[in-house]
Write a protein that binds this DNA or RNA. Structure first.
Lengths: 253, 253
DNA sequence: TAGTGGTCTAGACCACACG
DNA sequence: GTGTGGTCTAGACCACTAC
């Protein structure tokens, strides 16, 4: 995380950098030096403008740079605040998907808020993953927000085969998916997963209370039980400022 | 990826949304509807301003929203272009870290450009990971950019124990890490990895040619050989618009 | 009521691409 | 030169917070 780059001599040589970059880099250095501490308020946009001798528009651009880097957040009517953050670490391997257990172990109260739970005709990719007939199959489509201590940290989108969704309609809308299945004696034994990262679009930025474009970790999965029978599939989009995934791998040689 | 949200009736009811959001959402819809195709140029900022009846500043804000979502890129003097993209999929499991092989298999010419290769005193966390004495140890510190077909897709930062770095100084600056070791008969047999996502800071945004704040997938690793002896450690930051990780997991029950 | 950030405007000048 | 995006300004009005 040390920086030194292109420009050999660090200070003063603004050297073609736009003002909003120069300013946001200065503020960033001050934050990282502990001059402004997590949770602390920065000077107002007006004061920063005076201090750096630039217009408010340029200060706002600089602050936007800091927001995009996750260094500060703004609150209308209150001010600009240094973000403080701690990450929740999800193990990629066993136990899989037990988000609620992971949250509890790391000191958070986990809960979900179901946004949608409805029967719909299966999208092609879902039908394929769940090995259902692609034309006629119906699936339950659920979207829910995952909270850790009242902070929305993720959005889970799942597709359940009709029978499963029907029998667990109430429970799936109240609790975490994996735990709900476990409580009903349904044990998963395999998974196909992929991880990627995408910028938050407008809809997601509203749901997860993050700025547009913030990185989200996308955990795609198809879960299996029995003898390679698909149980359900879906994805969870996590705020990357709150989460990371860990894994230990042995190479078979 | 369908949208429907808070506002029950979709069209016209701008309903409190800022203009720059309304406009960027309209443009986004047009792009996703194929009205503007990948690679194609959008109207100029001036023309968009005329079309939507707003100032250029507001158009620029709307375009910034699209850039942050990875939907368009801009080129000074030329215009605004719809991005087209295909993802490189890296398997998280065996074979680990063979980036060059993965790239070749998926039709890209992979190469690296070494930015730094120097002896330095080991940072505390590196000394710990490599099981070196934390006060005295020296390590080789390498930073290199990974290219796929001339597009910079990642930045790799590695720390090698002194002896290893010394003996492979030339080769490590020319080729991919894993392959260099393999060519010298050094076989890795275990790894401890974690994955997270972070927004690009200014330095990274310059190296990887992405906008400030773009999501990067961070692949952290400690690689081992022999009997749990650390070989080297480091991290690779990948552009998330180019890459994803996949994995298959069996749960031991 | 005063102070703060959020939105938007109209206009200026610059840097780059292209013919 | 013309047209494009990039930067920056000065100022207006609004919405929210706190006193």
């Amino acid at each position: 995380m040390t920086s030194s780059f292109m420009v050999p001599s660090e200070p003063s040589t603004t050297a073609k950098q736009p003002l909003h970059i120069v300013i946001s880099e200065k503020l960033k250095a001050q934050i990282e030096a502990g001059q402004y501490k997590p949770g602390q308020r920065l000077p107002s946009e007006y004061d920063l403008g005076e201090k750096f001798g630039v217009s408010r528009t340029t200060i706002r651009r600089a602050v936007a740079n800091l927001i995009q880097q996750g260094l500060v957040t703004t609150q209308q009517g209150k001010g600009i605040f240094v973000s403080d953050r701690r990450k929740i670490s999800f193990p990629m391997s066993n136990p899989l998907m037990q988000f609620d257990v992971v949250l509890r172990e790391q000191g958070y109260a986990g809960r979900i808020h179901s946004l949608r739970f409805q029967l719909t005709s299966a999208p092609a990719d879902v039908a394929c993953k769940l090995k259902l007939p692609s034309q006629t199959a119906q699936v339950y489509w659920q979207e829910k927000i995952i909270y850790a201590d009242d902070a929305p940290i993720g959005l889970e989108v799942d597709y359940f085969p009709e029978a499963l969704g029907h029998s667990l309609t109430d429970q799936l809308q109240q609790g975490f998916t994996y735990s709900t299945l476990a409580m009903n004696g349904m044990t998963l034994n395999a998974a196909k997963v992929s991880l990627e990262s995408v910028p938050a679009n407008y809809e997601l930025s509203e749901y997860l209370a993050v700025p547009l474009g913030m990185p989200l970790l996308v955990f795609n999965y198809v879960m299996y039980w029995g003898k390679h029978a698909p149980a359900f599939c879906g994805k969870t989009l996590f705020r990357s400022d709150w989460t990371c995934y860990t894994s230990e791998i042995e190479i078979s040689t």
